[in-house]
Nucleic acid binder design. Structure first.
Lengths: 202, 202, 202, 202
DNA sequence: AATGAATGAGCTTTCATTCAT
DNA sequence: CATGAATGAAAGCTCATTCAT
């Protein structure tokens, strides 16, 4: 089946991109990983860039899908518990997507075309922030979140913390970021975000 | 002067990396930008990787320096004001460093050697988080920050938000991230971080 | 019908050769133009060269046929009129055949095999010259052409002029060869050929 | 010397074009013939097309130069003698240039760029015709050529005959064009052109 | 009879690197 | 100290051709 071949190639490309890096993801390497000849790549994709865009489109884990139905969870469980779940999922997602997403910055043309595609499909990493903000706004209406809190800012803080942690983990290696394990990290940031920094009497 | 030549080359390399991307930062392009011949690059650097590492080491803006003396500012001004300053500086810093830092993920070997160098020099992006955490801990002793707050988590939230925003800006373009300008973004996240999300009576 | 398919392919190949040139007349392009798959080409032809030879054999306009019965026209009309007709036909013929005939010089092997086929079939561009020479010889016997004229040389002059003009037209474009239109060109060369250059008393 | 290298490459390219044909004139073959690596070609030429254009510009024998001073010969020697010399030179020139000039028709883009260059330099094969026509016009003033003869047409006849003969020779091989050797061919066409075909009393 | 998935050889071009000057 | 001519290796890509269906 033709779709199988295509899929195998995309999968191989993703694997090579993850292991050798975008710069070493050559057509030869990808073909070998896919078990096909180089020529076959060009029967299924217009060129290397087209293939990479397909990988980016089809293989980047889709966080948005996970968070899309988040607003509907407002009112259920505890806010803290829900945010911890979100943060956990975010951590896992960013952990997977950071290396590939970051790679793309080395090829501005690829970046531009990827951005274009993302926006056309109304996707993008910022959509996750919007979903979390929407959730918080819903909780605000249920008075489970401070009336004067800023949902967008809160979402930025929460997801930003996860995002940066994923980046640091990949950049520095796990061993460097000592102290907090993943769970305690999530607990700590949610707790801190919930109660704020200001002393009770300000 | 030999040091001048070296510096010119590093500067040219940085410029090319920023404009054309790491993948298109070829020796030919860099030599042309520097106004020297390709051969000259090899009198001053062992090879391309060595040159890139020098760029990374010498040209990545050094946020750490800016935040190093932050703990000493505890007790001065307001916590909110200090955090806003930090966030503003972070935003500017990340904005400059994200494209180059991200690029490096496309070349695992380069990434590994860069990490090695960073750790050896006891630098790294996480140092900024540590400095902010140290500052908050100091403010805690002065009782300008809740006694039970988690300084590391707070630092992660604040800087993470800035980090992700810089990333989104570069990935999506400024026009997409509508709504909040830079200043209001800083104000909003600091305000939200200060007061937390929990309703007053929890 | 199998012959239809074959013909369609030959036609498509000719079209591609004329529009894209021999070098860009790839099997892919030809198959697309014919509306068949590449594989189909190989059911009807042994290979690309075989296909090209078929095009050359079957699609190169056959001037010889036009001139074959020329000698029989001796004695009819005027010599001048007959030569003008021949020149006009030659011009049209060369105009169509020059680009393809010239192309073949880029592939010596193809040229060799084409020549071989042409000679085997007792065809070839020089046959036209022979026919015109035969016609002139016939007119000589009728004393409508100087007794001491050289029919072969005259044929070479007449057809050569047309040949070169076709070549120049294709090489330089119509706009460059200003001055004489087609009709006047034919009239002029025939007139000049008839009366010669020598002053009346030499 | 750099110019030596360039020249050697152009020479090698010409040799390969002549022996293997334009289609088989690959960069690898040319580099090998020149005694350099393929990479070196690209230090001296922008690409293959650029190299071919250089060959066409610099290595196509320049007939125009030979005929440029032809008009000045008017009045000297005999018209017949002068035309025989021109025809001989034309035959030699066309013999050398036909294969390469014809080749170019297989690559329309190359043809277009070559034409452009030729016209820009005010060159081109038709210039030879113009020179011969100018010569004949001068002889007309000296009354060594019929007053009512058409110089352009006469030039077209003379050079066209040579042109076509060169083409036929290359296309069919020398053995096929039997009968007239080169000298007698030249003599015959000049003689025929001089005296014309019309019987004395028409 | 026609397909179309697949290929391997070969293409043009770019790259980082070397070295005599 | 800097050059620039030169290179070998490898890149992305195209080609004519095969073959099971």
């Amino acid at each position: 089946l033709i779709v199988e071949t295509r899929e195998r190639i995309v999968g191989a490309a993703e694997r090579v991109m993850r292991t050798k890096g975008l710069a070493r993801a050559t057509t030869k390497e990808i073909a070998r990983a896919a078990g096909y000849s180089e020529g076959t790549l060009y029967k299924h994709f217009e060129g290397k860039e087209d293939l990479f865009l397909s990988v980016l489109r089809e293989r980047l884990p889709n966080f948005v899908v996970l968070v899309r139905d988040l607003p509907e969870r407002s009112g259920r469980g505890t806010v803290r518990g829900n945010l911890e779940e979100v943060a956990s999922a975010a951590l896992a997602f960013y952990d997977e997507s950071v290396p590939m997403a970051a790679s793309v910055f080395s090829e501005p043309k690829l970046l531009a075309r990827h951005r274009e595609g993302v926006l056309k499909r109304d996707r993008g990493p910022h959509k996750a922030n919007e979903a979390v903000a929407a959730y918080l706004r819903a909780e605000q209406h249920l008075e489970r979140v401070r009336r004067d809190a800023n949902p967008e800012a809160a979402a930025a803080l929460l997801l930003g913390a996860c995002y940066q942690r994923a980046f640091h983990l990949h950049f520095l290696g796990e061993e460097v970021l000592a102290g907090s394990g993943e769970e305690s990290f999530v607990e700590d940031i949610v707790q801190t975000l919930m109660q704020g920094l200001s002393p009770k009497k300000e």
